[in-house]
């Protein structure tokens, strides 16, 4: 009877968008409900994820703080400009003003030839030798502190080169060595943090994947029956994916809690240490971007982990 019509039109599919949304909402709530029903087990899994996420976030925060610290270091990358010998004090002051007006300069301080001589006399112990000279051999110096936007080694270098162009300036000396070193150290640490973040993300993936795998095993009978009565793979997958999502989100929240708590614990000793260096330095909190990254990244990792488990194990379960 059916031979005359072997290609029947496709199956009728129920695709009301509102009902689909409702179904997703029910799935999400049900998945959360399943996690809440085993609070201890859920908390343990979420905590492992939380710690894995907190480590790179915390280290990232540390590096961020080191960076602000180096940026704020007063005179850290100061530039000394030795003015030409034939300039008098009025001309030297004019040069200082011109340089101080530059946007990439925060402050320019003039040390006149007399001031330089006085200071040299006091510090060097060559006072008598200097007396033998009939004129002051020292040039006037302008000490330049780059503005906040120009504190990096490269920017300071650029500024120094620009200043070299002034006719009144004989010589420009920059002490960038330690700024460069610190920057190199920060870069190295940063790379390390990214590496660590990558590894720990993989760990989160595996933790969630394994948790969902066990859950799939526990519910194997149910999955078989659902397949028997015509449940699509997407229908069967959905609750597990939502569980992965919740694990990720809970883990992310725990991670933020851990980082914030750790920061609070560090704040007092850091302030004491900074106080010893006459600095008002305080640890910065996680930026809004970093918080958002953890809150989005955690659930995404959870979802991906669940997907891995589901893709591997769900197709193996077939009703007999």
């Amino acid at each position: 009877m059916k031979r005359r019509n072997p290609k029947r039109p496709g199956f009728r599919r129920n695709r009301s968008p509102l009902r689909w949304l409702l179904h997703h909402a029910q799935n999400a709530v049900a998945a959360l409900g399943r996690l809440v029903r085993h609070p201890l087990a859920t908390l343990m899994t979420a905590s492992v994820i939380g710690i894995a996420l907190a480590l790179p976030s915390g280290l990232y925060l540390l590096i961020d703080n080191v960076r602000t610290l180096t940026g704020n270091w007063d005179g850290g990358s100061s530039i000394s400009l030795f003015l030409a010998q034939d300039l008098d004090d009025r001309e030297a002051e004019y040069v200082r003003k011109t340089i101080a007006a530059r946007p990439d300069v925060a402050e320019a301080r003039l040390i006149t030839r007399e001031e330089a001589l006085t200071e040299f006399r006091q510090r060097s112990g060559f006072a008598e030798a200097l007396d033998l000279l009939d004129h002051n051999p020292l040039p006037a110096v302008v000490v330049v502190r780059p503005s906040a936007s120009a504190t990096s080694a490269a920017a300071t270098e650029r500024l120094a080169q620009a200043l070299q162009g002034y006719r009144e300036i004989d010589q420009v000396r920059v002490d960038l060595q330690w700024v460069r070193r610190l920057e190199a150290i920060t870069h190295t640490l940063e790379r390390g943090v990214y590496l660590l973040a990558g590894l720990l993300s993989a760990a989160v993936l595996l933790i969630v994947g394994n948790t969902i795998r066990l859950e799939i095993q526990n519910r194997q009978g149910e999955i078989e029956v659902v397949k028997l009565v015509g449940g699509t793979d997407a229908f069967i997958r959905r609750p597990f994916l939502y569980e992965g999502f919740w694990y990720g989100l809970l883990g992310a929240l725990i991670a933020l809690l851990l980082v914030t708590g750790g920061l609070a614990l560090m704040q007092a000793p850091v302030r004491r240490l900074a106080g010893l260096y006459q600095s008002a330095f305080r640890l910065d909190l996680l930026t809004a971007e970093a918080v958002a990254a953890v809150l989005v990244g955690g659930p995404l990792l959870g979802l991906a982990g669940a997907w891995l488990a589901v893709a591997r194990h769900l197709s193996r379960i077939q009703p007999e």
Binding site: P6, F11, V229, G230, T232
Partner: peptide, 22 residues
């Protein structure tokens, strides 16, 4: 094999759930 007008050999894995609903 034909069931309800469909050749089951030609039914893709993806369509099995919809077949089972019938």
């Amino acid at each position: 094999i034909w069931v309800n007008g469909r050749n089951l050999n030609r039914l893709s894995e993806r369509n099995i759930p919809y077949h089972r609903r019938e």
